[in-house]
Design a protein around this nucleic acid. Structure first.
Lengths: 158, 158
DNA sequence: GACCTAAGTCTCCATTTTGAACTCCGGTCT
DNA sequence: AGACCGGAGTTCAAAATGGAGACTTAGGTC
């Protein structure tokens, strides 16, 4: 009931338009974009496959794909099926592939908290088959628990 | 998580409504929710502070907060300021706190790819002050690079 | 009673999204 | 040639969503 402890924080220390997270959220934070990226990580790359799999309206899909290509997250690449004209598919760029940790983190959280039974997909070490989870680690590979981390603000001009 | 080359994949191996990622995306994937959580991690917890900081319409904010409380990501807690009636603030629940890795992954990706200069915020080891990044690791704390991981589907009933 | 503030609704209008139909473009079939 | 096909969009009216800002509520002070 009381309020004694923590000081009141009235605003975030980083302005929205200077915040990578806010920008990422602006780019990815809509109903379709994350789902499209999920498909992309699974390797689904063609317009019609995406549309059928997500049950998304064509216009919505078309718009998101254009945006993601423009932002360099996806690449539009020509392909040619036997007996067909050249068409285009959407593949992750390197920038897009680096979103893997975000998607995996989201997946692991969602599997744990928004589903009832065991997760349908595990991420494992390709060699040893050990299960992997998203963590924080130093450059040298030492894992640090969430309770033992702190945020450090960078001074405005240093 | 690889996407090189030939075989055509026409659909994701996991149905949308059985997919934790898809559900998480449904819950978090809109314009305000991720930003609200960002504020929550910074410790901003009161309605008016959030509103001012995000410049969000009251109705939007009110709706998201209700949803996040309903989903157990935030907790609505009473507090009492001097000379005021009891009011409520929104704090992360344990479930919400576990979203930290998602948000940090998003932040690190956004800082790297969507901003020009150096990131305004680092996550460090509270003791050693070493910089930390989001990674995948085994239960024993061995870090594995993204190129060395594989997805494993769990059989439908095992 | 008049007024204050934080928190939340309500109303109305602008934008976005949707589903369905239509177009475009090569290629194939007859 | 002309009709048809299938993937990849585009267009458009109708519907849903979203926002700005006024209004309301609840307890407390003066």
């Amino acid at each position: 009931m009381s309020n004694s402890g923590e000081p009141r924080i009235t605003s975030a220390p980083i302005a929205l338009d200077d915040c990578g997270m806010a920008r990422a959220s602006d780019l990815l934070g809509d109903r379709w974009t994350l789902l499209i990226l999920r498909e992309a990580f699974y390797g689904v790359s063609r317009f019609e496959d995406l549309r059928a799999d997500l049950d998304a309206p064509r216009a919505a899909l078309s718009g998101r794909l254009d945006l993601l290509v423009e932002e360099g997250v996806l690449e539009k690449r020509p392909y040619q099926e036997e007996k067909s004209r050249v068409r285009h598919e959407y593949r992750l760029s390197e920038k897009g592939r680096e979103l893997a940790l975000v998607l995996i983190a989201l997946m692991q959280w969602g599997d744990k908290h928004l589903r009832d039974d065991r997760p349908p997909l595990d991420i494992v070490d390709a060699k040893t088959r050990e299960k992997l989870t998203v963590t924080l680690a130093t450059a040298k590979g030492r894992v640090v628990r969430l309770q033992d981390v702190a945020p450090v603000l960078r001074k405005r001009n240093s």
